[in-house]
Design a protein around this nucleic acid. Structure first.
Lengths: 360, 360
DNA sequence: CTGAAAGCGCTAACAC
DNA sequence: GTGTTAGCGCTTTCAG
């Protein structure tokens, strides 16, 4: 049984290899650097010896001299939110293939926590990907001054950004809802510190203008199922026939909350989400939502970060924008399906005993 | 606009502080170590100077001498699986409060990937938490020889483990199903490399024995919604009235797959999952499942790891076992509700147009 | 192409 | 308590 009281095994060092291979330590070092600037014959011998001794270059020592740790930080707003899973995967993959290790930081939707965690990791990483950061622009810029930073899902001038085409997504939602006969859309707002939240609302305002659809906003609510349930209560007091939620979790919460109060989705109200998380496909009714290329987001941001770390100037011009698409499921339907029923959509104000009668 | 071509700002070093405060570097060092073994007056002065100079101790350099990086690795089987979210949170929290940073590694359900990633991180971390590792026992033992390791959701002799009370959970499921009149339970198996998978099956065998319930197993399938859907097809060929799935994702996939084929849950078949992920509460019908204290798992494992890193011998006796509880929702029901209907549960072999008629 | 020497920023022995 | 002296394992000048 291993005893970990004392520091772990001393591994073979560069000196051991050097001695064994009859060369100087610096030659061993050179044999392991990128363009192996060593006589290919001795290089081979060195590699053999290293293999035999189980030598592994010590990243810490290397980092101390090169000031490159080969680690990047990936900060996400909330690990509990499934959207980040694919983003993390994309980032990991890109990092891996660039010989980089990823340190994941979960900000738990807290500005304060996020800053603290980044501050701690700062000196240990070569760069940072900020996915859906809740920090202020100025805080982000401050970090960006000390380390390469790429921001995901947010546009900040002077910092390289990767975003999805929110305006286009919202526009598609508005068109879709319009075609179904809705002339009024309620936006259920997420965290105010969230950049896409503001962007989506503004895009909706604009789309409403062009398509002659009235819009309004309620909230903010927490971007969770629970937040959506709370929104349902408020929505119940100020009825609507079509709702766009900040994200899928909120949309799912909305459906649940409304059902509980006897409101039928999509019979009484159509609901649209954002993100296309896996759960969007398993709720009843299936959630109409705007899908983003999550994996690509993580991967693009990370690749961009790596090029910056390697010396590029991070083209800070326009943010890189990734396409989205509208996924239509069952949570959206034509308004007032039965023509004779021109009443308010919220006719049944009393909870029905069983909300399962939505055969429509 | 910052130029990252050259290494980032040289930060103030211990020497700068020493010079400014008129003390030796080692004194500065001492002033920053745990029991600050320095004249409290000069300690204060040093701290002031450090503050003014924006001095931050360089963790890399520190690690080089102490061989303690203050980082641990947390390896999870699949970041896409929501169970890990809370585990990660628990681990992060525990790590944080122990002044440790967590490096998250997503193994993507791949033995190979897992090993590779750990090998890369190995020399950079002081210890490892292996959550639901897919590696062989011997591989794990090998790592455990080089670094402190705590294994989560798996029992391996000679390595400290934290597990949940799978046998008890399964037992409760069997009892519950038995009370509902089921005399036969089908276990839908997950990954064979998964320890809890085998454990749960064996526990079911045993419980079946005692409670006089017949059991059988199908699979293995991938532990995802898709895997569950595939299992549904196989299940359709060999009907059952009660099913225990390896995890919630599979259970949800099962429900979907069965519904699609015209089989009603829980009317025709009762389904139970494992884990109580958030989605278990939002599917229709709500999923009966075995809940584990996810956050506590992550936190316990990590705290244990930290004590080992600090020199304890990792009491390798029995694994630490955490309690579970059965969460009963709508996916389980009494067998053959209408007494006159003593037919096979799979009477409707043709897909029904609408599976919503489950008012039970 | 290779060796020698210096040092990254910090801590750990030792002395005083 | 505090200063002095060596390094941790590697890279990087600078010579040859």
């Amino acid at each position: 049984m291993p005893d970990h009281t004392s520091p772990p095994d001393k591994r073979a060092t560069i000196y051991d290899v050097a001695a064994e291979a009859n060369v100087s330590p610096s030659t061993v070092s050179r044999a392991f650097s990128k363009p192996s600037r060593v006589n290919s014959e001795t290089a081979e011998r060195i590699r053999q010896v290293a293999e035999r001794l189980g030598y592994r270059t010590n990243p810490l020592a290397r980092a101390l001299t090169t000031s490159r740790t080969h680690m990047i930080a990936l900060v996400i707003a909330d690990i509990t939110n499934p959207v980040y899973a694919e983003i993390v995967r994309g980032a990991q993959e890109a990092a891996m293939s660039g010989e980089y290790t990823t340190v994941l930081i979960d900000a738990q939707e807290s500005d304060r926590l996020e800053r603290a965690a980044i501050e701690r990791a700062m000196s240990t990483v070569d760069g940072i990907v900020l996915a859906s950061s809740r920090m202020s622009d100025s805080a982000i810029r401050m970090f960006a001054k000390q380390r390469p930073v790429v921001v995901l899902n947010r546009a900040i001038s002077d910092v390289p950004c990767v975003v999805t085409d929110n305006p286009r997504g919202v526009r598609r939602v508005a068109e879709h809802l319009g075609e179904l006969g809705h002339d009024h859309i309620t936006y259920v707002s997420g965290p105010q510190a969230s950049w896409p939240n503001g962007t989506r609302w503004r895009a909706l305002l604009e789309a409403g203008m062009e398509l002659e659809i009235k819009v309004r906003q309620i909230g903010p609510f927490s971007p969770t199922i629970e937040g959506g349930e709370r929104a349902a209560v408020e929505l119940f007091a100020r009825p609507a026939t079509a709702v766009l939620a900040f994200n899928d979790q909120m949309a799912i919460g909305l459906i649940r909350g409304l059902n509980r109060m006897g409101v039928d989705v999509p019979g009484d109200v159509s609901i649209v989400g954002f993100d296309n998380i896996p759960a969007a496909d398993i709720v009843t009714p299936g959630l109409t939502t705007v899908a983003a290329p999550l994996y690509a987001e993580g991967s693009a941001a990370t690749r961009h970060l790596l090029t910056m770390i390697r010396g590029a100037h991070g083209h800070t011009g326009r943010p890189m924008v990734l396409p989205v698409r509208l996924v239509i499921r069952r949570s959206t339907a034509t308004r007032n399906p039965s023509p004779g029923r021109a009443r308010s959509p919220w006719v049944r104000q009393r909870p029905r005993p069983n909300p399962a009668a939505r055969l429509s």
